[in-house]
């Protein structure tokens, strides 16, 4: 053990195993550790942390505001790689699950994308599992084919539990629009 302790001492790394507390080193090292998790925009420790595909860390509110500021130039503030709201990964640290109301000024941070481990990608509509509704167009017995396919979303499909988020509301709204479009279309067909 003494050998390890010596090693850590010489390399200057923070040594938690070191029984004798090296009082002058610790606060500095902690600061350094903290700095690795600074948001690249506000330079503070990242809150609601997200990471871009190019690997840069931000607070979600900061990144969101950056993307809002330049809607037609969505680039990473650090390396200018192209980024998008949909393609950031949220970081969930342990013990930081305290969920404040997500619907404040900023829209909630995008959820992590979780893929089931088994290769069951053969089942239809898999890609839509996230969205909670399924839309398909097919050629069938004329009015009915369209009708039935449009009503697919009512079907019991493995949808994610209604989150009560904005996304859920949007889905409901979209569903209604499609329903009315279908009704109008059928009405038009019958009248024409």
């Amino acid at each position: 053990m003494s050998g390890i302790t010596e090693n850590t001492k010489t390399s200057g790394e923070p040594s938690k195993e070191n029984p004798s507390p090296n009082s002058s080193d610790t606060p500095d090292d902690e600061k350094k550790d903290d700095r690795m998790f600074e948001c690249n925009i506000c330079l503070d420790t990242a809150k609601d942390a997200v990471v871009s595909m190019c690997g840069h860390l931000f607070c979600w509110p900061c990144l969101h505001q950056w993307l809002e500021t330049r809607p037609n130039r969505q680039v990473c503030p650090v390396c200018k790689a192209s980024i998008s709201k949909e393609k950031v990964v949220p970081l969930y640290g342990r013990g930081s699950t305290k969920q404040e109301d997500p619907r404040e000024k900023v829209p909630p941070r995008p959820a992590g994308q979780r893929t089931e481990p088994e290769p069951g990608s053969a089942f239809p509509g898999f890609g839509f599992a996230d969205n909670g509704f399924h839309m398909s167009f097919g050629i069938g017995a004329f009015p009915f084919g369209f009708f039935t396919s449009t009503f697919n979303f009512g079907e019991a499909r493995p949808t994610p539990a209604a989150r009560g988020t904005q996304q859920h509301m949007e889905e409901q709204f979209l569903s209604k629009i499609f329903l009315w479009m279908a009704i109008l279309f059928v009405a038009w067909l019958l009248l024409a």
């Binding site: 900061c62 950056w66 990473c76 503030p77 650090v78």
Partner: peptide
């Protein structure tokens, strides 16, 4: 101008 990035 237009090439500003927030991390600068």
């Amino acid at each position: 101008k237009d090439q500003w990035a927030a991390a600068m």
